[in-house]
């Protein structure tokens, strides 16, 4: 069973603000799911390689080609316009250094 304190810690790491009532509900919900996934400890995974993706493809690369998408000026404008706090062509964030 996760404690309220543990839930607070996870929420902070996940950058989610929760209210007091939610903390209790999430402690209960997460505990029941974590209880269920413990089931995997029954499986012997010795000498089994992890499957890290949906295909067997490895390290696919392509040529950089800025002509294709990035220089689409209309798209560039739309992407910048979607920002909730913009200055010129920059996304503006609060300063993080004193």
């Amino acid at each position: 069973m996760l404690t309220k304190k543990e839930v607070e810690k996870i929420a902070e790491l996940a950058r989610l603000e929760l209210d007091e009532r939610e903390k209790e509900k999430f402690a209960e919900d997460l505990s029941s799911v974590i209880g269920y996934i413990q089931k995997l400890s029954e499986v012997n995974v010795e000498k089994v390689e992890p499957m890290t993706g949906g295909t067997n493809l490895e390290s696919i690369t392509r040529m950089d080609d800025e002509i294709k998408t990035i220089s689409d000026s209309q798209m560039r404008g739309q992407i910048l316009n979607a920002s909730p706090n913009r200055e010129g062509d920059y996304f503006k964030v609060p300063s993080i250094l004193e």
Partner: peptide
């Protein structure tokens, strides 16, 4: 914290937290 706490619904937050854990 505020944006994500208010912007995401309960199930999404549940799964993000589960994954974080």
């Amino acid at each position: 914290l505020k944006t994500r706490g208010e912007g995401f619904g309960a199930e999404v937050r549940r799964r993000i937290m589960l994954g974080t854990y």
